Measured scan of single mutants.
Amino acid sequence: MSIQHFRVALIPFFAAFCLPVFAHPETLVKVKDAEDQLGARVGYIELDLNSGKILESFRPEERFPMMSTFKVLLCGAVLSRVDAGQEQLGRRIHYSQNDLVEYSPVTEKHLTDGMTVRELCSAAITMSDNTAANLLLTTIGGPKELTAFLHNMGDHVTRLDRWEPELNEAIPNDERDTTMPAAMATTLRKLLTGELLTLASRQQLIDWMEADKVAGPLLRSALPAGWFIADKSGAGERGSRGIIAALGPDGKPSRIVVIYTTGSQATMDERNRQIAEIGASLIKHW
């Protein structure tokens, strides 16, 4: 067993022997301040990774656009098919120029040779490549099948209805392509620590998230040296922004954090800054 596999296998073990965790309302004060600064709703939840206990939450059962955070769930569904012998990570998928959609920095470079399922998941999570996500959605049967996968996990809230990039439209009061912070946090925890996926697939999923290259201005910008984070960000229309993450000190994750916002007129930089400040408060009061 590799060191990384050992780390993920012992996530519940280490967490069980940690000192009790206590909620700190100071972080919620910052979440509410972010709402004021952005002029928009902000949803927040913080779960203990081992027990699933909610440590703090704000608007945990209000719907927010998922945006690209759905790509972690998508690759979880792909990995479940791999575990069941219905898919192979090494299978190569070929596609054409007509398949390319807006923001496809990886797939646009491989029109000639195609990409493997493993490479597509890596591109979808680490670079948020939209064509990679659409190609992977095709392998599982489309958005409705991802929703069905989530329902089978016990998540009857999260739903995907459309493809990239239309799913980022974020129309107010439109339930399409949305989740709730509580539902997303619980589902992410199941994917990373539950028995739904094999140990190898859980490790692969967290490795992809740990290698995320496009979430630097968010929670990662607030992390002290030595902290662990595996995350996936999302951005959408109407001032929408979000991030889902597993993080913790001492090089291992111990909490799940989900943050979503929508309806702001603020710039992307300002949305990023507010999420980073929430992260800084979380870490300060850990």
Rank of each mutant, 00 (worst) to 15 (best):
I278V: 10
G242W: 00
M180W: 10
D99E: 11
S128V: 02
I283Y: 12
P181S: 04
D33K: 12
V157T: 12
H285Q: 11
M115I: 09
L192A: 07
I278N: 03
R255M: 06
H151I: 14
G52P: 05
A225E: 12
L28K: 15
N272Y: 02
A211L: 14
L192N: 01
S122Y: 13
C121H: 00
E61N: 12
G39M: 10
R118W: 15
K71V: 01
R273A: 12
V258R: 00
S281R: 12
L160A: 10
S68A: 00
P25E: 15
E119G: 10
T179I: 06
R81L: 10
L192T: 08
Q204R: 11
N98V: 15
A183M: 11
L73E: 03
L223H: 03
A225Q: 12
S233W: 02
V31N: 00
R238S: 11
E46I: 08
E61A: 12
G114H: 05
R159V: 07
V106S: 09
G90S: 13
G154P: 05
V214E: 04
A133G: 12
E237K: 15
A40N: 05
V117Y: 04
L191Y: 07
G234Q: 02
R220W: 02
L146R: 01
R220I: 01
A132F: 01
R273E: 15
I140R: 03
M180F: 10
E108G: 13
F58A: 11
K190P: 04
A200S: 13
S96I: 12
L218P: 03
S96Q: 14
Q88I: 13
G43I: 00
P105S: 05
L197M: 09
S96A: 13
E210G: 08
M184T: 01
D113R: 11
T69Y: 01
Y44H: 03
F70L: 06
E145N: 12
D207A: 14
T198D: 10
Y103E: 04
L79N: 03
M115C: 05
M127G: 06
I278L: 09
C75W: 02
D212R: 04
L73Y: 06
R63Q: 08
G242Y: 01
L89H: 07
L150P: 01
A211T: 09
V106I: 15
D83F: 02
K232Q: 00
E61G: 13
D155S: 00
A170L: 08
I125E: 00
A123T: 06
Y260L: 13
G248A: 04
